[in-house]
Nucleic acid binder design. Structure first.
Lengths: 252, 252
DNA sequence: CGTGGAGTTGACTGGTATCAATCCTTGTGG
DNA sequence: CCACAAGGATTGATACCAGTCAACTCCACG
């Protein structure tokens, strides 16, 4: 009963998502680094949520959705990175979460069609949209799936609560360290981490908007981390040089 | 379909909650200052969620629940103020939300029994606990209620996202102004605002933990607001002296 | 080549945190 | 009824983290 759905891996072909050979075609249920619970029967997602329309391409740095938009379906990011963002009228931005390949844009989208945030493409992004289905129909067809979806929704909420704690009570270095470790964990599940490095298309501005800092200060902290031999970013690749140190920073 | 349940007003007798005469005994659905949608048939909450045990008294400044606790039911705060809190190992604390009389401790508690946060009593608090009921049973007995509960859960998530934005991107004065306005809106629904004043049992430490500041700086900002004739707190009563100014501060 | 996005660096400012002392309030027990 | 303790609020002095402004470099790209 602790299923949590944020990623629906068998929602679409896995060219980018899965190393060949891994053919366990169950819905993979993953949340914030916790245990995967692969016991939803194969294909339950597609059976319950039929495809509404195929892939759509959004160019890097463009908005995918805007706050107030009414979703006609449940969007899933197929490839590329995106971000859920809140904007203030004077231009300040807070990134609420990063959306990686295979993620639902928001678990809440299964149950509600009104967005309270913006979704911006960071890299080029391909999306798929599935049909939203009434609650009772989901329940009838796959009770486990419904549970998993609701748990995913709760997990998303918990993650935002962690974010709020980071923003309110942790300092610059800690926040950046935690962001990097979180990204590594999530990308590891996707098989996109090789050793201590992974592709990281975020600009310093994205890191700043996610951690509640200014770009310039992000630059300084990153510089310090590089000098101290903890983390470095080179050509869009993040390399953790001293994992223990990074974990120490993110602790408490 | 935009029902949102966070407060279940007819869950218990209303001595403290409702001025006599207001006898519209429907479940009142309220969220973050948005429209109430009172169209759930009377008593649906009690029918679906039977009382598990009666009021329990928790003394001010004591913990009600701890992160990791397994809830045996769905707790509702009957009287008094409480707070949902995240703690770091070194003692830093972030308040995620305040729980006012009539609030569910967390809308998520209807669907999941594991807490990821602490719940502390700010004043003396009385709680009631209802039995948790399987999804399909709720759906069968009152589909509207289920929708309302899920919407309430999503609303709670949206509120935390707003909090994260406040913490990440707004400054001290803005955050405090927004907190006070939010409290006023919520208390107004409870009929606990008279003119421009309301009881506000929060200590400066609570305000600090909610806004991500230190007590001392909270004290300074409050002092400034008092000197500028915007807000003052006296003997546990908050009085808004200049609403327009307060709204200006909280804007953007 | 230019142009614009991105990163780096330095000097300076300012908002908050930290430490410490005092005072006020409230509750408690003698 | 008083004394005392504990919690809370206020104030001052000082330190430091992070924001602001500005200049410069480095690219990728057309």
């Amino acid at each position: 009963m602790t299923l949590e759905a944020r990623r629906i891996d068998d929602l679409f072909p896995r060219e980018h998502l899965q190393p060949p050979g891994a053919e366990g075609r169950t819905v993979r249920i993953v949340a914030g680094g916790e245990a995967a619970v692969p016991d939803i029967p194969r294909g339950s997602w597609q059976r319950v949520f039929p495809l509404q329309h195929e892939r759509q391409l959004i160019r890097a740095r463009h908005s995918i959705y805007r706050a107030g938009d009414i979703l006609e379906g449940i969007p899933v990011v197929h490839s590329g990175w995106a971000a859920r963002i809140r904007r203030l009228s004077d231009g300040r931005r807070q990134i609420l979460s990063f959306i990686l390949p295979g993620d639902l844009v928001s678990a809440g989208a299964v149950f509600s069609d009104r967005l309270s945030f913006f979704v911006d493409a960071i890299t080029d992004v391909r999306t798929t949209v599935c049909k939203r289905v009434p609650l009772d129909e989901i329940l009838a067809q796959s009770p486990r799936l419904l549970h998993a979806l609701m748990a995913g929704c709760l997990a998303e909420k918990t993650e935002v609560e962690e974010l709020a704690t980071d923003l309110g009570r942790r300092r610059a270095e800690e926040r950046i360290a935690r962001l990097f470790l979180q990204l590594r964990t999530r990308l590891e599940v996707l098989g996109q981490v090789s050793g201590m490095s992974f592709d990281m298309p975020l600009r310093q501005q994205h890191i700043a908007d996610a951690t509640g800092m200014t770009v310039i200060h992000v630059g300084r902290v990153l510089g310090a981390l590089r000098n101290d031999g903890v983390v470095q970013i080179n050509g869009g690749v993040l390399t953790i040089a001293d994992l223990a140190a990074l974990q120490r920073l993110s602790d408490a």
